[in-house]
Design a protein around this nucleic acid. Sequence first.
DNA 1: GCCGTTTGTCAAAGCGCTTTGGATGGCAGG
DNA 2: CCTGCCATCCAAAGCGCTTTGACAAACGGC
Lengths: 349, 349
Amino acid sequence: MNLRELAKHLGLSQTTVSRALNGYPEVAEETRLRVLAAAERHNYRPNTRAKSLATGRSMTIAHVIPISDRHEMVNPVFADFIAGASEAYLPRGYDISLTVVSDSGQEQLYRDIAARRSADGVIVHAPKSRDPRIALLSELKLPFVVHGRSSEIDAPYSWVDVDNKRSFRRAAEFLADLGHRRIALINGLETMDFAVRRRAGFTEGLKARGIGIDPALMRSDEMTEGYGFEAARELLALKDPPTAFVTASTISAFGIRRAVEGAGLRMGRDISLITHDDDLSYFRNGGETAIFTALRSSVREAGRIAAATLIELIETPGKLSQTMLNTDFIVGESTGPRIRVPEQAGQPG
Amino acid sequence: MNLRELAKHLGLSQTTVSRALNGYPEVAEETRLRVLAAAERHNYRPNTRAKSLATGRSMTIAHVIPISDRHEMVNPVFADFIAGASEAYLPRGYDISLTVVSDSGQEQLYRDIAARRSADGVIVHAPKSRDPRIALLSELKLPFVVHGRSSEIDAPYSWVDVDNKRSFRRAAEFLADLGHRRIALINGLETMDFAVRRRAGFTEGLKARGIGIDPALMRSDEMTEGYGFEAARELLALKDPPTAFVTASTISAFGIRRAVEGAGLRMGRDISLITHDDDLSYFRNGGETAIFTALRSSVREAGRIAAATLIELIETPGKLSQTMLNTDFIVGESTGPRIRVPEQAGQPG
DNA sequence: GCCGTTTGTCAAAGCGCTTTGGATGGCAGG
DNA sequence: CCTGCCATCCAAAGCGCTTTGACAAACGGC
């Protein structure tokens, strides 16, 4: 059932039917009711492609999910981010188009989207420092919102981010105030802008408390459970091991926990840990009491806000907007004062 | 730059240019080269909507991600599944359209997709027993492939699944053979078909080894880390606690592990655990040696196969296909013989 | 040198919708 | 009774592509 058939059926022109359905005023109320009833009865839905060809609006947002070149992984934060975003899209009638692509293929993909007008806007995930996509999208005049920020970019653009630097500074200071002096950072991939900011905040916090920076205590990689485990295991095996850790996700935090317990140590007593917590739905940081002391900021909410920001930008061009999400400092069971240096913490296995 | 402009530029008709670009034979090789060069030079890309309006093919596959009605969660397995699927779509030119929708909204959504022809086919995620979507999609003549299966459906349809029943039977038998008699099942939501099959396999395995079924040892819920933890903690606090667990995902397995260690017990010695392992990229079940003894089947591969199956079905209608993926039985560090009933395993905290 | 066949090209219709620019008729005001 | 003005409705063009059917030009066979 298409518009022409529906119109013929009603003895009206396509114009009138189209207007009746889209809420234009120049159609008699009685006719509108007849049209709506008929549309309902015949289960009429306008053909998406035809509509967007005629209007020039595609009513879809492209999400380009970068796949790690090294490991070919898809970060589970995207699941929650997109769930949040779709809460904003759904009531406004936008669809999501998803493409999983390696870093190297991203530029070409954005060019394609712009040239074939397959989306009205895009969300930029996982920005790197001085990310070339930002200049590219501006040049292509494709509305976009960045989830995160990119350092050393002068031109303004829309973004939604958390204050990573401040968060990690607070984490480092909190641990220092508990008496810890050997504090390790198990960071995300430092090709990512957010990871650079976190490291900066972390070292800033140490310096503020008069603690020297030891590069041997800083790791950086894809934030998997296994990486958290391996990194922590190696660090705990040092002659002068850390008594505290700061890490970038609950997922790696679980790995660290496993390493700590595998070494016969107790989290929160022998070893302290603070994590950044994206509040992932399948990895809640505990119920009433948090497992990990954490700086929490819901990535789902970030998705919702980024989506809403993008829709605004699409509907009123030029309306840039920056949102800094606040993080909650949750004190959980994974931190405590340094009681003693764990003498010779053996490696597991 | 659109087709007409490009054609005018070349002094050719749209017809010829279109044919040259799409590889039709009735165009001189010399002309084709000229056209291709010009298209390249002007960065020409055909407008997606116009093309699909003209051809009637949308070249997009709809993925409808169900959001749990109770908890509003998005299962991270979708991230890996879609990553796999996109490996199959990309070279064939298909796009992914993603919609996150609650169970109750699914039927309407599929009807919409069919009526507005916004996708050439759909992947059905998370089927329930006797899932109404299967009959609906058949009726709508919308090609589909189910990730999993749905019991008590007579008409044939395409699916990609693992042999959940057999897997869980093997898990139960394996534990029984190690001497365990009190074996708990921490299952996924039993409104899901796969969870029903797993439970069936589990009880079948127990019966085969002459072990009675104790409903008090069987739990069912969304497979989060927190659920694994809570369920295991409660079970371990029973007067007659289990000495072994079977669970439905590595995520809940990590929760069980946390509960076991929180109770002062040691995984693989005091308590055995077997998990189903989707081989999630951020939750690898260990490196060289597996953390958990597991029945492993890559959900990413399932995505790849489901996508390929769907494309085949779209391109040659009626070509149904069923794929049963095999699972690898990985023996890891989480299982061992029952040495003794842990006398009074205290609750943590 | 004529005819049938390729070969290469094109004009125009059509996909299903929106939107522009009238048309039509009824009605109030003069 | 005429004019002007709403209130409704419509025919047709256009969005950018594919595809049908037709048509010149070139070519080989007799």
